[in-house]
Write a protein that binds this DNA or RNA. Structure first.
Lengths: 218, 218
DNA sequence: TTTCCTATGGGGATCAGCACCCATCTTCGG
DNA sequence: CCGAAGATGGGTGCTGATCCCCATAGGAAA
């Protein structure tokens, strides 16, 4: 008897990665990649015009990121389940993905059978958090929420993330102030808040953090 | 008749990517992945203890980057050809890879058959520059060299490189002075010399440089 | 409505980074 | 033997970064 395979859309800007993941998934009896996309808007377009059960989205993509695409899919194609597949072992992105409606978050460092399991779990309706570091992230996060009522929000605001990137790219306070057309004082204020929220000492640690988190390139 | 397949070492910190690329390469009659590595030092270790014809190295890897690994391989295992496989469409990395002894530089955005072609070209001894943007890079680079604008080929002294690493790891001048049992003044003097030699502005640019060069981890 | 958060901006203090000046001592090669 | 280069260290002064204090406007949440 023939089982209906899960129809998968695979979105990643690297053709090589798409090809490899496709080979892994198509090898499974219950999974089939029916479409590929090189960026977020392509992914959304595909989901609008053909039946897709599961969208596997990379976060870092040109034009529209996987996070944007996930948000858009939750309104224009709510029946499509979303699994984020990314290299970013990063709290920010993780919670943003959950907020954007993703049912799973898997790092590219997982083994192939973990990805397959993530696909199946997502299709069963179970949220899949890749084993290890991510569950630790969630646990410490929940701990903080439970105990640290005084810790306001460990998540950076959009403005703060913008400042963070500019700082980590090597811009001085003055340069950032000119770029954003705000005063140097405000830039310093934001940066100070960021340092405090992330528990870092100075611009240099901020840079290393941002590079490690994949927010900027070295 | 059986042809000896090219023995390939595949180094990438993402198990999923390794798996995918392996599926692509093993599908070819003349190529075979005989080993995998999750970071640069693993890659070097593998090449020391078993025969490898071609090492495919990712640039961004923990502990030891692909650039460092390439440099090391050129001395401890000079017979191994090196092909850099990376997501960075970036002039800096490209030339650093060439200097480190890589015979090829391929982006992860290429198609699978381009990767296969790159492997074959590298084994034939031809340098493989992925089509398009990279050849343009090479042309402008050669132009610059020809027109006498010789690149800043400044070499740091051993002591300066030691200081550079400590600075890039986030240590303050005072901390470095204590670590090396020298005065803060001398640390600042060295750091100043480093900045001047490399044409950088401050600690932050120094850090980004060191990370890009593979001297320290993020 | 009232309260909280965010973004905005100012003043002042302290400190680290950085550039410029100066020097001595060692080592190594011509 | 001498000069160049590297490593060491001191002084001075400027600028930027960081950390305090303060305030206001707007929006969202309670």
């Amino acid at each position: 008897m023939t089982i209906a395979k899960t129809k998968i859309l695979l979105a990643d800007d690297h053709a090589l990665v798409r090809r490899g993941v496709r080979l892994i998934l198509d090898n499974q009896p219950d999974l089939q990649v029916v479409a590929e996309a090189a960026d977020g808007s392509e992914a959304v377009a595909v989901c609008r015009r053909q039946p897709v059960d599961l969208a596997i989205l990379d976060i870092a993509m040109p034009r529209m990121t996987g996070l944007q695409a996930a948000r858009e899919l939750s309104t224009v194609a709510p029946h499509v389940r979303v699994l984020m597949l990314t290299m970013y072992d990063n709290e920010q992105y993780f919670f943003q993905a959950l907020k954007a409606g993703a049912s799973g978050y898997v790092l590219k460092s997982v083994l192939d059978r973990d990805l397959v399991e993530a696909c199946r779990a997502t299709m069963r309706g179970e949220p899949f958090l890749y084993p290890g570091a991510m569950t630790r992230l969630v646990r410490t996060y929940l701990e903080r929420v439970r105990h640290g009522a005084d810790l306001p929000q460990q998540i950076l605001t959009a403005r703060e993330e913008e400042i963070l990137k500019l700082v980590a790219e090597g811009n001085s306070s003055k340069e950032i102030a000119e770029l954003l057309t705000i005063s140097v004082k405000t830039v310093e204020r934001h940066r100070s808040n960021i340092l405090q929220k992330l528990g870092l000492r100075d611009r240099l640690e901020l840079t290393r953090y941002a590079i490690r988190a994949g927010l900027v390139e070295p």
